[in-house]
Amino acid sequence: MPKVDASTRKRVTADWAGAFEGFDVWKPLRLARRIGPVVQGITLDVNTVGDAYFPTAHIHCLSRDFPVVSLGLAQRLQTSSGVQESIRFSRHEADFPGAVRVLAEQSTLSLFQPPTIEQIVNACHSFAFNWQNMGFPPAVDVVEDSVLIAATVERGDLVEAGLKLARELAGVWQKARLPLDWVSAEVWLEGLTARVSDHDSLSRVVSGQVLKHKLQKVRELPIDSGAAQ
């Protein structure tokens, strides 16, 4: 089956945007909203054949210089048995209402009420911890993102919690599975601590990333840090 045309992609994107009115259309098949230094997105990730898409909830940290808006903490729509589920473009009208409901139920972070920074950071911590327990490669970037996000909004308590988790995980990560440029846990932790101590630099990175990825048209929601009042 040939890949779907631009008009179909536009129509499918509009349907999902109508279902999640808290998000804006960023690109075809991609919805997004900004929560401070975080992009929360819903991506309709097209399969290799091009005849179906995987609804995927995710986040992206703007506090690091990165060439694309990534699918961090990606959660694809799943069946009740835990199998990733795609929606055929030919069956979109029939299947997408149910997919909307299930994706919203399965997403760790709310797709309706904007999550707080604390909820986002805690989701990163849980992901990194669970990833390690399941035997997957170290979630170095996720741990870094949790700390960078917290530092950007000046949540010192969450920064310390993230650095504590970083120290714990760095002590059990297998070196053979770490990034090729990894020198040592000490060097990594020192570098991460230095980055989060420079708030002005983090803010400049966020501003630069917004421009680079053309996110100006995406709504920026008020930041709820989640801190106790």
Rank of each mutant, 00 (worst) to 15 (best):
Trp131Gly: 00
Val187Ala: 15
Val187Arg: 14
Asn133Arg: 14
Glu186Thr: 09
Val183Gln: 04
Arg177Val: 03
Gly50Lys: 12
Ala194Glu: 09
Phe96Ile: 05
Leu202Tyr: 13
Ser7His: 09
Ile87Leu: 10
Val100Glu: 07
Val121Leu: 04
Ala139Arg: 09
Lys175Leu: 12
Lys212Glu: 03
Arg64Gln: 14
Arg9Cys: 04
Thr43Leu: 09
Arg91Ser: 14
Val142Cys: 13
Ala228Asn: 06
Asp157Ile: 15
His125Glu: 06
Ala74Cys: 05
Val100Arg: 05
Leu71Tyr: 01
Thr8Pro: 08
Ser207Cys: 10
Asp224His: 14
Ala151Lys: 09
Leu211Val: 10
Ala32Glu: 05
Pro55Phe: 11
Phe112Ser: 08
Leu178Met: 13
Asn133Thr: 12
Asp200His: 08
Val210Trp: 03
Gly82Lys: 02
Ser201Asn: 12
Ala6Pro: 10
Val183Phe: 03
Leu71Gln: 06
Val140Met: 05
Val172Glu: 08
Leu44Ala: 02
Arg91Leu: 14
Ala161Thr: 04
Asp181Ala: 02
Lys175Met: 10
Phe89Asp: 06
Ala128Arg: 02
Glu144Thr: 03
Leu211Thr: 07
Asp198Pro: 08
Thr108Cys: 05
Arg101His: 05
Arg167Trp: 06
Asp157Leu: 15
Ala104Asp: 01
Ala128Leu: 06
Val4Thr: 00
Leu169Pro: 02
Arg76Ile: 00
Phe129Asn: 12
Ser86Cys: 03
Val38Asn: 05
Ala17Gly: 12
Leu158Gln: 02
Ala166Val: 06
Ala128Trp: 03
Asn122Arg: 15
Leu192Trp: 02
Glu118Arg: 11
Thr152Lys: 00
Gly98Phe: 02
Ser126Tyr: 01
Lys175Pro: 09
Tyr53Lys: 12
Asp51Val: 14
Gln209Cys: 03
Val147Met: 15
Ser70Val: 01
Pro179Gly: 13
Val68His: 08
Gly22Gln: 10
Val102Glu: 00
Ala104Ile: 00
Ser110Met: 11
Arg155Pro: 06
Val153Trp: 13
Pro2Thr: 07
Asp224Lys: 11
Thr193Tyr: 14
Ile59Lys: 01
Lys27Ser: 11
Pro67Gln: 13
Pro2Ile: 08
Trp188Leu: 03
Asp5Phe: 09
Val121Trp: 00
Gly82Leu: 01
Asp95Cys: 09
Arg219Lys: 07
Glu118His: 09
Thr108Gln: 05
Val206Glu: 03
Leu215Pro: 05
Glu85Trp: 07
Val12Cys: 10
Ile42Ser: 05
Ile149Ala: 15
Thr108Ile: 08
Pro37Gly: 02
Ser7Pro: 07
Ala6Thr: 07
Ala139Gly: 09
Trp131Asn: 02
Glu105Met: 07
Asn47Glu: 08
Ser203Phe: 15
Ala74Tyr: 01
Phe54Val: 01
Glu105Gln: 11
Val172Phe: 08
Leu192Lys: 09
Gln119Gly: 14
Glu93Trp: 01
